[in-house]
Simulated scan of single mutants.
Amino acid sequence: MTMILHLAHAAAWAEAQHVGFYAPRSLDSEGFIHFSTEAQLPGVVERFYQHQPEMILLVVAVDRLEAELRYEEAEPGEAFPHLYGPLNLDAVVEVRLFAT
């Protein structure tokens, strides 16, 4: 089973539990939700999430996704997973506290 990862603020994940799906601001502003592979995660944390409090790591099973997933080049030669729709909660197989 292929897994992808997403860093989220704890408050946004709590809201997702209330509404039944996860749809961060990037879905509205960019049209997709940013994900990474396990190998890409350290670079993502270094570039975007230094010293962010109350972060959680969502571990997502690709085969459970309802929205379209595309791997797209975000940096030269490196394709990142992007989800073009809200994240259905049953695709999340693990939630971990994450300290940056």
Score class of each variant (00 low, 15 high):
residue 1 M to F: 14
residue 1 M to Y: 08
residue 2 T to K: 14
residue 2 T to W: 06
residue 3 M to Q: 14
residue 4 I to R: 02
residue 5 L to N: 12
residue 5 L to R: 02
residue 6 H to A: 11
residue 6 H to W: 04
residue 8 A to C: 11
residue 8 A to D: 04
residue 9 H to I: 09
residue 11 A to T: 10
residue 11 A to D: 11
residue 13 W to N: 07
residue 13 W to Q: 00
residue 14 A to E: 05
residue 15 E to C: 05
residue 18 H to D: 12
residue 19 V to S: 15
residue 19 V to C: 14
residue 19 V to A: 07
residue 20 G to D: 15
residue 23 A to S: 14
residue 23 A to L: 03
residue 24 P to F: 07
residue 24 P to T: 02
residue 26 S to F: 06
residue 26 S to M: 03
residue 29 S to T: 13
residue 32 F to G: 12
residue 33 I to R: 00
residue 33 I to E: 01
residue 35 F to C: 14
residue 37 T to Q: 08
residue 38 E to N: 06
residue 38 E to D: 13
residue 39 A to M: 07
residue 39 A to V: 05
residue 40 Q to C: 01
residue 41 L to D: 10
residue 42 P to Q: 07
residue 42 P to K: 04
residue 42 P to H: 04
residue 43 G to E: 03
residue 44 V to Y: 01
residue 44 V to H: 04
residue 45 V to Y: 05
residue 45 V to N: 03
residue 46 E to F: 13
residue 47 R to V: 05
residue 47 R to L: 15
residue 48 F to Q: 09
residue 49 Y to H: 15
residue 49 Y to K: 01
residue 51 H to S: 10
residue 51 H to A: 08
residue 52 Q to V: 13
residue 54 E to P: 11
residue 55 M to K: 11
residue 55 M to R: 06
residue 55 M to A: 00
residue 56 I to E: 07
residue 56 I to Y: 07
residue 57 L to H: 06
residue 62 V to M: 03
residue 62 V to S: 10
residue 64 R to S: 12
residue 67 A to G: 07
residue 68 E to R: 08
residue 69 L to C: 01
residue 70 R to I: 01
residue 72 E to Q: 07
residue 72 E to A: 11
residue 74 A to F: 08
residue 75 E to Y: 08
residue 75 E to A: 11
residue 75 E to W: 07
residue 77 G to L: 04
residue 77 G to D: 00
residue 83 L to E: 09
residue 85 G to S: 01
residue 86 P to G: 02
residue 87 L to C: 02
residue 88 N to A: 06
residue 93 V to M: 06
residue 93 V to S: 11
residue 93 V to T: 04
residue 97 L to T: 13
residue 97 L to V: 08
residue 98 F to Y: 12
